[in-house]
Amino acid sequence: MQSRRVIMIVGNGEVPEGAAATIDAADLVVRFNDCRSVGRGGRKTDVIAVCNTGRPALSMLGGGRWKTSEPVRQAREFWSVRSGAKFAAMRAALAEAHPDLDDFCDDYTTGFESFARATGRRHRVVPIGTHEQLEQDLARFAPAPYVAPSSGLVVIADILSGTASAGDEIVLAGFGHSGWEWHPFAAERRFVNALAAEGRLRRLSPLPLPDLPQGA
């Protein structure tokens, strides 16, 4: 019988003070892109979820700094969060609505796949079905016009739909639900809060402050 795991999903936002040890004690720690959470958010890194299209992907693959960083060297797996087929299908409409995002759909999945293979790690692509279901679920929270859900939300949906087993505890840290203007962050916050209310995940709370000595 498989034991219950703690799966920690650590975004690149603010992490509660004193959370590093709690994060590092998790059975599975997932971080994102350049892993800016490392440090205050602990050091353990099992999976790095990468934005495999557009400028972020080109930046990670284009130089040696990302590939030789501590969390990348430590990671056992890389997950490409964007379906190449889905983003290719978005290209024509995006060119009209957002001509400044002309490279947004450029697909670098093969670059991450090759890097993983060359270094003996696993690579996987989040299925297109996860994207489709996520957008249906997100629609219930009245998102403002957006280009794509954030990588963080895609990974949450992916873990809930497949990676996690019954009884696993999914914990979020470093999710401020703010950043790039064309992610639907307000709706994402409401969606995650609803998942938490349903008991499907929880946010990592700040640790209580130690009792202060009384008197002068």
Rank of each mutant, 00 (worst) to 15 (best):
S3H: 07
I9A: 00
I9F: 01
I9P: 00
N12E: 02
E14Q: 14
V15Y: 02
V15A: 12
P16S: 01
V29R: 02
D34L: 12
S37L: 04
V38I: 14
G41D: 05
G41S: 10
R43Y: 08
T45F: 07
V47F: 03
A49G: 06
V50E: 01
T53S: 11
G54P: 09
P56H: 03
A57F: 00
L58H: 12
S59D: 11
M60K: 00
G63H: 03
R65I: 14
R65K: 12
R65S: 14
W66R: 04
W66Y: 06
V72E: 00
V72M: 02
R73K: 14
E77K: 14
E77A: 15
E77F: 10
F78I: 15
S83E: 01
G84K: 00
A88C: 05
A89M: 04
A89K: 03
A95N: 13
A97V: 11
C105T: 06
D107E: 05
D107T: 06
A118D: 14
T119V: 03
R121S: 10
R122D: 15
H123K: 10
V125I: 15
P127L: 09
I128W: 02
G129V: 05
G129P: 08
D137W: 01
R140M: 10
R140S: 11
A142L: 07
A142P: 02
P145T: 14
Y146R: 11
A148Q: 15
S150N: 04
S151N: 07
L153E: 00
V154S: 03
V155L: 15
I156M: 04
A157L: 06
A157C: 10
T163C: 08
A166R: 11
I170N: 01
V171C: 13
L172C: 09
A173M: 04
F175Q: 01
G176T: 14
H177K: 08
H177L: 11
G179T: 14
W180T: 14
W180H: 13
H183P: 08
H183V: 11
P184R: 13
F185G: 12
A186I: 08
A187V: 05
R189K: 09
R190Q: 13
R190A: 15
N193S: 13
E198F: 05
G199K: 02
R200Q: 15
L204W: 00
S205L: 11
P206L: 00
L209Q: 13
P210A: 04
L212K: 12
